[in-house]
């Protein structure tokens, strides 16, 4: 037990300094999350309200980012769209992180055929492009919010499981685990109370990185018309809706939705990578 305390104490010391990059992009992430939570309440206009007398308008006092080809307020759709744009990847990350972590710890603890079997399965799953599975799911279960979310949740499990398994195998060999076993603690208790606690920062870092990728993939299914359905607002769908307007020089819809996607993906990736590097350095 004293080894564990010493490691955690050492990790705290080394990670104690303020990382300005994490601070900046963490703030951006926080702002975007707040936008997802409160955005629909802040939207100045009903996001699906069409106005055929004011289509493809440029920015004005009434519509700060202009209107789309059906006369809907783009700013309102961006704000309202943040919720679905974040909810989908959020569910994907929670489900894949939970399942991936459980599988990884089980494999690391049990070893042998379970570990080998899981590795084989993960290798096969890595070979399948996520977006393809999402499109297949939409074909089988129908286009909408849930089909790509469930498919991508499955696809993202290996990304978490592989990283967490490595960490869990390392923890499994630690003397404190042996000490716990000698003390008569059950495998369930050791895994959930000790190993999980020690690999949790890695899970969080991986989930943060995964969130950005999941947002891209989820947005891509909406862009293809197989994810979130119109007239709901979602950033990927907005990029797609605005594509045809680009030809007319009305850039605002695709560009603003695309910019928010880029900002979100980059911010979450940087924060996730920084966390991951620091955990690696301290581990």
């Amino acid at each position: 037990m004293s080894t564990l305390t010493a490691r955690l104490s050492s990790r705290r010391t080394r990670t104690g300094s303020v990382d300005k990059v994490v601070l900046v992009f963490g703030t951006v992430c926080g702002f975007l999350i707040l936008m997802a939570v409160f955005g629909p309440l802040l939207a100045p206009h009903p996001p699906s309200q069409t106005d055929i007398l004011a289509t493809s308008q440029g920015p004005s006092g009434q519509h700060l980012l202009g209107t789309d080809s059906l006369g809907r307020d783009i700013l309102s759709r961006l704000l309202a769209g943040a919720r679905l744009s974040f909810l989908g990847p959020g569910i994907i990350v929670v489900v894949s992180a939970t399942a991936g972590t459980a599988l990884a710890i089980a494999a690391a603890w049990h070893g042998g055929w379970l570990d080998r079997g899981l590795n084989r399965v993960l290798n096969v799953m890595f070979a399948v492009p996520g977006i393809l599975v999402a499109v297949l799911a939409a074909a089988v279960f129908g286009a909408g919010f849930w089909a790509p979310v469930l498919a991508l949740s499955l696809v993202y499990i290996p990304y978490v499981a592989r990283v967490v398994r490595s960490a869990a195998v390392r923890e499994r060999r630690m003397p404190y685990v042996e000490a716990c076993e000698l003390a008569g603690l059950s495998a369930w208790r050791i895994c959930t109370r000790h190993i999980l606690r020690n690999v949790f920062p890695i899970v969080m870092a991986q989930a943060t990185i995964g969130f950005g990728s999941a947002l891209m993939d989820f947005g891509a299914t909406s862009f293809l018309g197989l994810g979130v359905q119109p007239p709901s607002a979602e950033w990927g769908l907005m990029v797609s809706d605005g594509r045809s307007e680009l030809l007319d020089g009305a850039l605002q819809q695709s560009l603003s939705a695309g910019a928010l996607i880029v900002l979100t993906v980059v911010s979450f990736n940087i924060v996730g990578e920084r966390l991951s590097s620091r955990i690696g350095a301290s581990g």
Binding site: S56, Q57, L64, L65, G66, L255, S256, A259
Partner: peptide
Amino acid sequence: LLLVAACSGGSSN
């Protein structure tokens, strides 16, 4: 994102 509003052209129907 900030420049989009200024740079993009909306036009009348």
